[in-house]
Nucleic acid binder design. Structure first.
Lengths: 222, 222
DNA sequence: CGCCTAATTGAGAAGTATCAACAGAAGTGG
DNA sequence: CCACTTCTGTTGATACTTCTCAATTAGGCG
């Protein structure tokens, strides 16, 4: 189910009065700048599902979104987590190739993903960034559990701009499905990193990165 | 080293007489249609290297190209193999994020990858396809060795349009680095698949797919 | 035919998954 | 505010998978 939107933004130029803004108006500006249609989702609500038409792209204002695929065997593989500022929902023009779900309470902006004959520079850049991210994630999945978990911590810390104290918004299952591990292995690996002094003060989803350099070295394949 | 080009194409409208065609001329048409600059590479020659400016994109006419990254620990991760018809070299506007090397003797067409303010629909589509491919590869890397090898065989067979008799152009190390396994595991897995009757008549790089359905089911995560 | 590299096989070590039990957090209702 | 319930995370024991190192066999090519 889809919860209804809150409307005001600090950066909004266009005040929505009801109905969508005219498409031409949206087109002539940035992807999201003037299109202040907001939506909110409760934790675990579906943002979009595999197979649905992919008419919109999303920008995260608040909260975390996971995008994933269910494999034939029933396992879930999470491709990425989207944090504040991230844009997602770029897909084959046509239909969704994966699911997107709110991990926490989420607020997003929505922009029309028009038939691809309108190509903005911004959209292309976002796509290239996504490409690079996926390539990195591929590297990650070829590494050891230690390296994957280290990468996850360093990457998350950087993205949420928390230098060394980290509040992890997702649960162990999410992390495991993202890293291609089991929750048990994630847990054990965290315990191991703690024993070695790389992380500390671990209270479930609250972790202190004690040796960011070592973690970073690990995460880069050393 | 970069070997010099052969010039004539069957589909060429524009005969190169010396120097590059004027950029505007290239822009107004398809990415490759009128830009018949060909290059050839011997096996293991570098097409481009990490860090180089990314001014061109390539289309494979003949042969196989591998693109890869060297991890900090010295290991090599192959992101993809490019076969006939594939377009590659889409990257962050700026500099190459990975290496591209010829696996076999390779013939490519080259097109200018202009500053991204000129965006062709074709280029965008290629980028989206690449995105989808990388996402699939991510799924793959979260599966078992059996599943990865099965996926590799099925995917390759489909791409080279060889229904069930497969001539594999790359060696075991390439396959291993692509699948995130070791050569030994690839070998053992092939032997196992042979024992089970899924593949047969295996002579090094020549493999018969005996049970494509079973292989396909494996490759999809069952 | 003989050499050289690639591929396979073997044995043992290491890493990760699985199944099960336990501990800790967070929420619920009295 | 506290007991109760439930969900999430941790730990333990064991099985299975994959890696590592070493030896052997097969293929490709002069």
């Amino acid at each position: 189910m889809i919860t209804q939107a809150s409307v005001q933004t600090s950066t909004a130029f266009y005040q929505r009065t009801g109905g969508d803004p005219p498409v031409d108006f949206v087109r002539r500006h940035g992807l999201f700048d003037l299109y202040d249609k907001h939506r909110t989702f409760l934790a675990n609500e579906v943002v979009f599902a595999e197979g649905q038409p992919s008419d919109f792209i999303y920008k995260v204002i608040k909260g975390v979104v996971r995008s994933y695929t269910i494999l034939a065997g029933g396992r879930r593989k999470i491709h990425s987590f989207r944090l504040g500022g991230d844009i997602f929902g770029i897909d084959s023009s046509g239909h969704r190739e994966f699911y997107a779900e709110a991990v926490t309470f989420v607020e997003v902006m929505v922009a029309r993903h028009d038939t691809p004959n309108i190509l903005s520079q911004e959209l292309y850049d976002v796509t290239i960034q996504e490409l690079i991210r996926l390539r990195r994630h591929g590297l990650l999945l070829a590494m050891s559990a230690r390296q994957r978990v280290a990468h996850f911590l360093v990457d998350l810390a950087q993205r949420v701009k928390q230098a060394d104290i980290l509040d992890i918004p997702m649960n162990r299952q999410d992390i495991a499905d993202y890293l291609g591990l089991t929750t048990e292995t994630v847990s054990r690996t965290l315990t191991q990193l703690e024993t070695e002094g790389l992380i500390g003060a671990r209270v479930s989803r609250h972790i202190v990165l004690r040796d960011v350099f070592a973690l970073r070295r690990l995460s880069e394949g050393m």
